[in-house]
Nucleic acid binder design. Sequence first.
RNA 1: GUGGUUGUAGCUCAGUUGGUUAGAGCGCUGGAUUGUGAUUCCAGAGGUCGCCGGUUCGAACCCGGUCUUCCACCCCA
Length: 447
Amino acid sequence: MKPSIPKGTRDFLPHEVRRRNYIFDVIRQHFHRYGYQPIETPVMENLSTLTGKYGEEGDRLLFKVLNNGDFLRKADTGDLAAQDSDAVLPQISKRGLRYDLTVPFARYVVMHQNDLAFPFKRYAIAPVWRADRPQKGRYNEFYQCDADVVGSDSLLYEAELTQLLDEVFAALGLKAVIRLNNRKILAGLAEIAGHADRMMDITIAIDKLDKIGEAGVEKELLERGVDAGAVQVIKQFLGVTSLEKVAPLLQESEIGRRGIAELQEVFDRVGSLTSRVEFDVTLARGLNYYTGCIYEVAVDTDAHPTIKMGSIAGGGRYADLTGIFGGRDLPGVGISFGAERIYDVLEELDLFPADASEDLQYLLVCLDDESLAHGFDVLRLLRQSGQNADLYPEAGKLGKMLKYADQRNAPRVIIIGSREAQTGQYSVKHMKTGEQETASLHELLGR
RNA sequence: GUGGUUGUAGCUCAGUUGGUUAGAGCGCUGGAUUGUGAUUCCAGAGGUCGCCGGUUCGAACCCGGUCUUCCACCCCA
């Protein structure tokens, strides 16, 4: 039988893992610097924790885990006979794979609220699963890198997270655009248009502006049952690119004015950044628990015109996430890095540092059995001195062993034959330049 | 979940209206070179043509199903 892996999942080669770790390390380092603490939660949650949190679409994309044992015996025979999946599902599955890191975090906060100091800042870098139809940059298993803070509605956190986003992308050498909006502005917009109850429909439609254009948005709004008069009101907003210009349009909406004030405060506090930071009234973001500021980060296409990639990070504020789990209602705000997409972008732009795919410092090769015994001792000393070293495990042809060193991406090869073993002067070949020098054991260990 | 697309050597791909033994480049193995890789030359190995079934004297090629890839929706990182 031919081996295979499930649709939408991937294996990683060593150099790919190292490059992924480089991204995770940069992000983790910045999470620490900003005072976020690591937590871990199970990859499986109870289905009751997950269902209903991501909308109807999200429920469809949840991976369900089949119950153990004779699970069909416990299911209702009528429901089984009727092939009613919705009715049978809760009878045969009580667990599911996590769909994101935020909802499990909310559950965690409620369960451990007496052990946590609020505001509580946590981060998590972990895989999540979605039963989406795979495409490029879209997988059924992928990593999220989340930082969230719960227990405070201070806008300092919005500003801090913006700085964090900026610093991470600067550290990765990627020019990014951080776009900000506020759900309250969108609520105000819906209110001004006379459809306060239709905010979701309206935001989904205007979110598509850059993709389908103004005429497309207009069509989408009409299809979603927004009347022509309201559409004209909404269209006024579409061309607006600054907070100053959107303010007059929202004068009559209290919630809209609050959104503008909040966003203004965030802009005032972030200071100067490496990335471009922009207000974008058409930014909506799908997750429906967001209630305040929302973020989305994309590659700056002015600096990197060849890149075609969706958002590479995002986030926002949610007023009430823990409430649904029966905890006291704690406000929160968080961001999430899309590590897989960042990987693809760094790869395409060749922005990985060279040492992100180099692990060995030395490879030792020996030309005869006596030298091999000697080499194994040298290997140990090198390792004890803190250097990454490996040894070709048998005496062999030098050409073959150098080829192996090449494949292992070893920058230096220590060649040990009878000459070197006797004199203690080892031949060190630098693979990049092809140059060769001699060095004593003392010199090798001291580097 | 809807519609489409892709699959041939380890990798990237050719393969004529259905016709004998399915090819190339790169990579791999060995040798030229028993102490010098990535560059040169020579030789060699490597294929259930994604899988299952059907049509046909005959299928990599046509048909159905299925899995996978990628794309557009939906949604999203």
